[in-house]
């Protein structure tokens, strides 16, 4: 928002917030905020799911191994890989937020956003290679 736009500031419109959020031009910080929020909601949802999916531990070895078998299929591994992308973004952008709050990061927050993407994509690809090393080995044969 430019400096002399204060007269145009409206009161918060609860019904039109989707439209309003979509309407303004977004800086890296806006995108970081939106993605941080989306990944955060997904991760807390996953934590509930994670507790539920580990609950067969109380029923002993057979029940647990049976449940875990469904999570080792390539489809679930792909989902887990995507989950790692969410964890990566939320963690790296979280570090960015901490630096903005406590280490004068407001001065370099835009380059921090770019760097969090670079580091994130590299770690994401590395994790993919580790997770799918068996499948990659099959392809290489």
């Amino acid at each position: 928002m430019s400096q002399n736009n204060y007269s145009k500031i409206k009161t918060f419109d609860q019904r039109g917030w989707v439209k309003e959020n979509l309407s303004y031009k977004k800086d890296p910080g806006s995108w970081a905020w939106i993605l941080h929020r989306i990944t955060g909601i997904a991760l807390i949802g996953y934590l509930f799911l994670h507790i539920y999916s580990l609950s067969p531990l109380t029923q002993g070895e057979a029940a647990f191994n049976d449940k875990m078998k469904s999570f080792t299929s390539p489809f679930f591994m792909f989902i887990e890989w995507l989950l790692f992308a969410f964890v990566l973004f939320h963690s790296l952008n979280g570090i960015r937020i901490v630096l903005v709050d406590w280490a004068d990061g407001a001065k370099y927050q835009k380059s921090l956003y770019v760097w969090s993407w670079i580091v994130g994509v590299v770690l994401f690809i590395m994790m993919g290679i580790v997770m799918f090393s068996y499948e990659i080995g099959l392809l290489a044969k």
Binding site: E61, N65, M68, F71, T72, S91, G94, I95, V98, V130
Partner: peptide, 28 residues
Amino acid sequence: RVTGVALVILMIGHYILMHYNPDSGHTY
């Protein structure tokens, strides 16, 4: 902020332990 930093550290350990090999996270 504090819990976030702690979670990032714990998460790194969690990922190494759970995904060191396919068995480490998925067998009783």
